[in-house]
Design a protein around this nucleic acid. Structure first.
Lengths: 341, 341
DNA sequence: CCTGTCCTCCAAACCGTTTTGGCCCGCATC
DNA sequence: GATGCGGGCCAAAACGGTTTGGAGGACAGG
């Protein structure tokens, strides 16, 4: 059942039927109701392909997932972010298109999505320092929102980010207040922007009390359980062992906990741990009471917000760039306590 | 730059240009080269919206993600499956559309995707026993492939699945061979089809040596670390404590390990553990040598295969239903050993 | 009665491709 | 020299909507 058929069945022109269904004012209320009723009865659904061609809009947004050979982006964050963004899209009648491409093809993919008219805008994931994608997208004129920020980008652009620096600064301060002086950092890969900011927050807090970061207890690696474990083994057997840990992810925190307990120590009493908790649906940080003390910020919420921002940018492409800085909350769990003397 | 402009620039008709670019035979080789060269030079890219309308094909496939209030599908599996499927799609010029919808709207979403012509086919995720979606899609005539199977479905349909029953049967047999007689099962939610099959494999293996499953050491729950931990606590303090565990996921296995070590026992010596390892990119089961003995099957590979199957179904909608049963390999790690006497 | 203004509706153009149904010309065949 | 047959090209009709630019009629105002 298409528009023309519906129109003849109603004894109206396609024009009027189209207008009636799309809520234009120049159609009599009585006929509008008649049209709407008939449309429902024959469950007419306008062909999306035709609408897209006629209106020149794609009614779709893209998420380009570079399939790194060293696979970094296919991370645990991803599915929750997508869930949040996807909710927003479906509520607004937009499609979400995922492009999984080898990372060297990422730029080409953006160009393609744009020039073939497949999407109206894109979300940029996992920005690196001085990320080249920003310049490219800006030049192309394709609306985009970055999840995160890219330090050093000369241009202004739309982004949604967590205040990673402050989160880790507060967490470090909290550990310092508990008397810890040897605080290990199990960070993410530091070519990623968020990881750099977290390290700065950590260093700043140390510097504020006259401490220098000790490279012997700082690691930067993919945020897996095993790497967390490895980092903790190293920091716990250092010349001056760490008494506390700051972890960039839940998984790393679990690895650290394993190392702690594996040495017969108890987390929260002998060694303190704070993690960054992305509040993932399948990696809950405890139930009633959190296991880990954590800086928490929902990545799903970030997905929602990024999507909303992108839709608003698409609607008004010439508006000034928008920014949304989320604050992580510091939640108290069972993994922190005063530094043993 | 669109087809018409390119055509006039070449002094040809749109017809000929279109045919030249699409490799039709009725165009002179010399002109074809001229056209191709010009297309590249002006980097002409055909408008996807127009192609879709003209050909009547969506050149896109859908993945509908029901956003369960009890969030079951937004699981760790998801991102790897998507990565695998996405690779296949981009290689074949198809778009992947993700629809995140409240689960009561799932059927409506399928209807919409189909009747508005947004997709040419869909992948069905996380089938339950006697899953109603299969009947619905069959009736609609929308091509689909199920990732997993739905026990009890009367109709035949396309699916890609792992031999979950045999995997757990073999794992159980292996533990029995090592002398274990009290084998706990930390299963997934048993309204999910894969979980049922795994339990059957487990029970069958026990039955084969004359043992009955002990409900006191069997759990069925979401596959999280905490649930694994809880299940292990229970099974280790049962009247007759379990000496071995079969876990449906890596995360559960990690929880079980924590419980074991928390009681001062050692995994692999005092208590054996076998997990089902989906080979996720951010949850690697060890490096050189696996931590957990496991039945392993790459969910990413399953994604690739499902996507390929779907594309073939779309190409030949009337072919007989296809099935692809993957076998999980049993890999030996450090988490299993003879039953202590 | 004439004019102007709404209110409703419509015919036709348009979006950018693919595809159908020729057309023209050169060349071989009889 | 007519006929047949491909090869190479094209005009125009789809595809299924939206949007532009009226048209016709009712009704109010002068």
């Amino acid at each position: 059942m298409n528009l023309k058929q519906l129109a003849t069945k109603l004894g109206l022109s396609p024009t009027t039927v189209s207008r009636a269904l799309n809520g234009y004012p120049e159609v009599n209320e009585a006929t509008r109701e008649r049209v709407v009723a008939a449309a429902r009865r024959h469950n007419y659904r306008p062909n999306a392909r035709a609408i897209r061609l006629a209106t020149g809009r794609a009614l779709a947004v893209g998420h380009v997932i570079p399939l790194n050979t060293r696979s970094e982006i296919m991370n645990p964050i991803f599915s929750d972010f997508i869930a949040g963004a996807g909710e927003t899209y479906s509520r607004n009648g937009y499609d979400m298109i995922l492009s999984v491409v080898p990372d060297e093809a990422e730029e080409t993919t953006y160009r393609d999505l744009m020039s073939r008219g497949t999407v109206d805008g894109v979300i940029v994931h996992a920005p690196k320092t001085n990320d080249p994608r920003i310049r490219v997208l800006k030049d192309m004129g394709l609306p985009f929102v970055v999840h995160g920020r890219a330090t050093g980008a000369a241009l202004d652009y739309n982004w949604v980010d967590v205040n990673n620096r402050r989160a880790f600064q507060r967490a470090t301060e909290f550990l310092l207040d508990l008397g810890h002086r040897h605080i290990a950092l199990a960070n993410g890969l530091e070519h990623m922007d968020f990881a750099i900011r977290r390290r700065i927050g950590y260093s700043d807090a140390l510097a504020a009390v006259g401490l220098n970061p000790d490279p012997g207890i700082m690691t930067s690696d993919e945020m897996t359980e095993m790497n967390g474990h490895r980092a903790a083994e190293r920091a716990l057997t250092a010349a001056i062992p760490a008494t506390a840990f700051l972890c960039a992810s839940m998984l790393q925190g679990m690895g650290v906990r394993r190392a702690i307990e594996g040495r017969g120590l108890r987390m929260g009493r002998d060694v303190s741990v704070i993690i960054f908790d992305d509040d993932l649906s399948y990696l809950r940080n405890g139930e009633a009471v959190p296991i880990f003390t954590a800086t928490r910020s929902s990545v799903r919420e970030a997905g929602r917000l990024s999507a909303e921002m992108l839709l608003s940018v698409i609607a008004q492409p010439d508006a000034a760039p928008q920014h949304h800085l989320l604050e992580a909350e510091l939640i108290l769990g069972q993994s922190t306590g005063p530094c043993p003397t």
